[in-house]
Simulated assay, not measured.
Amino acid sequence: MSDQQKHDWPRVRLHVVTGKGGTGKSTVAAALALALATHGRNVLLCEVEGRQGIARMFDVDPLPYEERRIATGLRDPEGTPGVVHALHIDPESALMEYLAMYYKLGRAGRALDRFGVIEFATTIAPGVRDVLLTGKVFEAVQRNSRNKKAIRYDAVVLDAPPTGRIAQFLGVNSELAGLARMGPVKNQADTVMTLFRSPRTAVHLVTVLEEMPVQETVDGIGELRPAQLPVGGVVVNLVRPRDLDAAALEEARSGGLDRGRIQDDLKEAGVEDGPDLVAGLVTEAADHAERRALEDAQREIVDGLGVPTYELPRLAGGIDLGGLYELAQALRDQGLA
Results as ranks from 00 to 15, higher is better:
residue 2 S to R: 09
residue 2 S to H: 09
residue 3 D to C: 00
residue 7 H to I: 14
residue 13 R to H: 11
residue 15 H to A: 11
residue 24 G to S: 08
residue 25 K to F: 02
residue 27 T to V: 14
residue 28 V to K: 08
residue 30 A to N: 05
residue 30 A to M: 06
residue 33 A to P: 11
residue 40 G to K: 09
residue 42 N to I: 00
residue 48 V to E: 05
residue 49 E to M: 10
residue 49 E to K: 04
residue 50 G to P: 00
residue 54 I to V: 14
residue 57 M to I: 08
residue 59 D to P: 01
residue 60 V to A: 00
residue 62 P to L: 10
residue 64 P to R: 08
residue 66 E to P: 00
residue 73 G to R: 01
residue 75 R to C: 04
residue 76 D to F: 00
residue 81 P to A: 00
residue 83 V to D: 03
residue 83 V to T: 15
residue 87 L to V: 06
residue 89 I to T: 03
residue 89 I to F: 06
residue 92 E to Q: 07
residue 92 E to R: 10
residue 97 E to I: 01
residue 104 K to S: 15
residue 105 L to R: 02
residue 106 G to S: 13
residue 109 G to H: 08
residue 109 G to V: 02
residue 111 A to V: 14
residue 112 L to S: 06
residue 114 R to W: 09
residue 118 I to A: 00
residue 119 E to L: 06
residue 120 F to E: 10
residue 123 T to E: 12
residue 124 I to E: 13
residue 125 A to N: 03
residue 127 G to F: 08
residue 131 V to T: 10
residue 131 V to Y: 11
residue 133 L to Y: 01
residue 136 K to I: 00
residue 137 V to L: 08
residue 137 V to R: 06
residue 143 R to D: 03
residue 145 S to M: 05
residue 148 K to L: 13
residue 148 K to E: 12
residue 148 K to N: 07
residue 149 K to Y: 10
residue 151 I to C: 05
residue 157 V to A: 00
residue 160 A to L: 02
residue 160 A to N: 04
residue 160 A to T: 03
residue 163 T to D: 06
residue 165 R to P: 05
residue 166 I to M: 07
residue 167 A to D: 02
residue 169 F to K: 00
residue 170 L to S: 00
residue 171 G to A: 03
residue 175 E to Y: 10
residue 176 L to G: 09
residue 176 L to Y: 07
residue 184 P to A: 04
residue 184 P to C: 05
residue 186 K to L: 08
residue 187 N to Y: 13
residue 187 N to E: 13
residue 188 Q to V: 11
residue 192 V to D: 01
residue 193 M to W: 02
residue 194 T to L: 10
residue 195 L to H: 06
residue 195 L to R: 05
residue 202 A to N: 10
residue 210 E to M: 04
residue 211 E to F: 11
residue 213 P to C: 10
residue 214 V to C: 04
residue 218 V to D: 02
residue 219 D to C: 02
residue 220 G to Y: 03
residue 221 I to D: 09
residue 226 P to I: 06
residue 233 G to L: 04
residue 236 V to I: 15
residue 237 N to C: 08
residue 239 V to I: 04
residue 239 V to P: 08
residue 242 R to W: 08
residue 242 R to Y: 04
residue 246 A to T: 12
residue 246 A to D: 15
residue 248 A to P: 06
residue 250 E to W: 14
residue 250 E to P: 15
residue 251 E to Q: 15
residue 252 A to M: 15
residue 252 A to T: 08
residue 253 R to C: 00
residue 257 L to Q: 11
residue 259 R to G: 15
residue 260 G to H: 12
residue 263 Q to D: 11
residue 267 K to T: 11
residue 268 E to N: 09
residue 271 V to G: 05
residue 273 D to E: 15
residue 276 D to C: 03
residue 282 V to Q: 07
residue 288 H to N: 05
residue 291 R to W: 01
residue 294 L to M: 12
residue 296 D to F: 12
residue 299 R to M: 13
residue 300 E to L: 12
residue 302 V to F: 07
residue 302 V to S: 04
residue 303 D to G: 12
residue 303 D to I: 08
residue 307 V to E: 04
residue 310 Y to D: 14
residue 316 A to K: 05
residue 317 G to N: 05
residue 323 G to N: 03
residue 327 L to T: 12
residue 329 Q to G: 12
residue 330 A to Q: 12
residue 335 G to P: 07
residue 335 G to Y: 12
residue 337 A to H: 04
residue 337 A to K: 00
